[in-house]
Design a protein around this nucleic acid. Structure first.
Lengths: 234, 234
DNA sequence: AGGATTTCCTGATAGAGATCAAAACTAAAG
DNA sequence: CTTTAGTTTTGATCTCTATCAGGAAATCCT
């Protein structure tokens, strides 16, 4: 074994249900597993993919978290996504065969590397895999369009509440606590993503704490009143 | 012939290059054509699909234009997309097998109806079709994420300029004039989509006209200085 | 550990765009 | 052709959040 993580397979991966193997049987998982490489862990601030680089692989997050962002004409970063375990990175690049955004680790993270051409061949033979690819892409289309609605016509407090609720839901899907979690991104990242200034994020987190809806201690968030928070998000 | 439009086929459709048949050969187009139904024209204000309805078909726009929107908990409409000829409607629903948004005609429009199950079977056999489906979905992911960046951290004028430029580009792709076109949506629709009030849209269109960048007369837009407009969009 | 750097918080001010209000215009319907 | 409903425009005011500024806390690095 050249790789200390080579004992990890789709068949025993806890994220399988969210990831590509969803609904595949044991044999299907085994076949998918053969084309997937376990990527060495990447460290905080490391960049996984650069915008413009040829798209050879999709990446599935095994552990940790990352952010994707573009850089506009003025050199300003615009965060478009935060990735958690089970998420697949790179779908936005399929149409042009190159990555359309940068993806950077927010903490030490483990990834699976999925060669596109092999995946295409496999999808031809496996209807379940094909359907799951459609599901994942479709879900990404839906969530990003829903986010549009969230950002438009909503106050700063509603946006932040929505962000916290959505994160909680995502952690729950992954078998983690939806009541308390750690933010791996900075306040500036959250602000950038939601179209708000750092100061506004900080103020609103403080307000939500004063109102007893959440507890915040640095990166740690505890949701005290989930229902009220959900109401605030509308 | 029971249908006055039954002589229209993918093989002679002017939108084929933007739509599903992209890169298919004559035989491929013919096969795709057999599963596609020509839908009867729908009138302005008619609703093509309701959010929550089971997703049996995708729709390709042949002519006309439509808007897609969700309705939030407060009953407020949130427009998430405008569809032009060649666009495929319904990808956001694949993940849950039901439509996630309402789609309404902005003017009399012609549509092609594509049964999902038949499309899946065809995609299994035709790598080119499969790849085009991926392209279209991937493109939709990219553009909606890019729009996020456009709405965040941008002024009202930049948003409107971006909207006008993007529309011009889309018309150009479709072989229409990118210099002058007709807006089929209301100012209120544009505002809703861009997260701005009707009044702001109206004021900014007036300003752009005063500055000589565009001419607006009711629904008709003429772009006088494309480069300056593009600059304004950043 | 100790200094350096980044991140976070809080206050004060200003400005972009929402909202309120009303009139002018356009399109649809009788 | 007249009426009516919907859309667009313009003006005045107000509010939310960006920006500027300073300091506190946390984290990184040697």
């Amino acid at each position: 074994m050249t790789n200390m993580t080579s004992h990890i397979h789709c068949q025993n991966c806890s994220m399988a249900a969210l990831c590509l193997p969803y609904q595949l049987d044991q044999e299907g998982m085994a076949r998918l597993d053969t084309i997937i490489q376990r990527h060495k862990p990447i460290q905080k601030r490391d960049i996984l993919v650069h915008a413009g680089a040829p798209l050879k692989f999709l990446y599935a997050v095994r552990s940790g978290s990352l952010k994707s962002y573009t850089i506009d004409d003025n050199g300003v970063e615009q965060i478009i996504d935060f990735h958690l375990p089970g998420d697949v990175i790179g779908f936005d690049g399929l149409s042009e065969n190159e990555h359309r955004s940068y993806t950077q680790a927010l903490e030490t993270s483990m990834l699976c590397e999925i060669p596109i051409t092999a995946l295409d061949e496999l999808a031809e033979q496996m209807p379940g895999l094909r359907r799951q690819l459609w599901r994942l892409m479709s879900g990404e289309i839906f969530t990003s369009k829903q986010l549009l609605g969230t950002l438009n016509n909503r106050t700063a407090q509603q946006r932040v509440a929505h962000f916290l609720v959505t994160l909680a839901e995502r952690f729950k899907e992954r078998g983690l606590s939806s009541r308390s979690y750690r933010l791996t991104m900075t306040r500036a990242d959250i602000g950038n993503y939601l179209g708000l200034s750092v100061e506004t994020i900080s103020r609103i987190l403080s307000n939500l704490q004063q109102e007893g809806v959440i507890e915040v201690q640095n990166k740690l968030v505890e949701i005290i009143e989930p229902l009220r928070l959900r109401e605030m998000a509308q």
